[in-house]
């Protein structure tokens, strides 16, 4: 009997944010990240019968997403190659470093920082997955998206006092979970 079962009905609610966060930290573009996440879910649906249940659904989806990200970079690099060919034949000397400047990483991040932030992000998302759905939604909207109380209340059709009760429960559960998995 497989250790893990597959159920695509809850993929979007449970994993879309985790996959999106994973992608955006690698491609640094919101639109491309959304497309890659969507492609991942579609590819997951198509290859559902290959899911053996040895790894969790999330791990399995991440392995598909990783391939999608690699494909994305391959595509970019092949375009870059074409651009380089064009640049080689360009006689304007001023444009020599154009491609390098475009490709250069604009963020001054060390690999260590990025890795630590990513592990911390994983720990937070793992704890979020354990919360009841409503608490997870409210926590994400309030804490990660940074939305105003009024906006969340309108979106979810709840009162501000109801929102703060949910926020309190979510924060308490998150802090407990993070204490077990990360803080200590």
């Amino acid at each position: 009997m497989p250790k893990h079962l597959i159920n695509p009905d809850h993929w979007i609610d449970r994993y879309s944010d985790y996959l999106f966060n994973f992608t955006i930290s690698r491609v640094s573009d919101r639109e491309i990240s959304k497309d890659l996440v969507q492609d991942t879910f579609f590819a997951g649906l198509k290859s559902m019968k290959n899911f053996k249940g040895e790894a969790s659904e999330r791990t399995w989806l991440i392995s598909i997403l990783k391939r999608k990200i690699i494909d994305h970079y391959r595509k970019i690099n092949s375009k870059k190659g074409q651009a380089e060919v064009r640049m080689t034949y360009n006689t304007n000397e001023d444009e020599g470093d154009w491609l390098e400047e475009r490709v250069a990483d604009p963020f001054d991040k060390t690999a260590q920082d990025t890795l630590e932030n990513e592990e911390l992000g994983d720990a937070i998302y793992s704890c979020l997955e354990k919360l009841p759905e409503k608490q997870a939604i409210v926590f994400k909207m309030k804490t990660i998206e940074g939305l105003e109380t009024e906006a969340i209340c309108n979106e979810l059709n709840i009162t501000p006092s109801n929102l703060w009760v949910i926020v309190h429960r979510a924060r308490t559960a998150m802090a407990e979970c993070m204490e077990k998995t990360w803080f200590n």
């Binding site: 879309s16 944010d17 999106f20 966060n21 955006i24 930290s25 959304k34 996440v37 932030n117 911390l120 992000g121 937070i124 998302y125 994400k140 804490t143 990660i144 998206e145 993070m178 990360w182």
Partner: peptide, 11 residues
């Protein structure tokens, strides 16, 4: 922790 992790999520 949430601030340090610079988490992103879909709206």
């Amino acid at each position: 922790s949430v601030k340090t992790s610079k988490l992103n999520c879909l709206n």
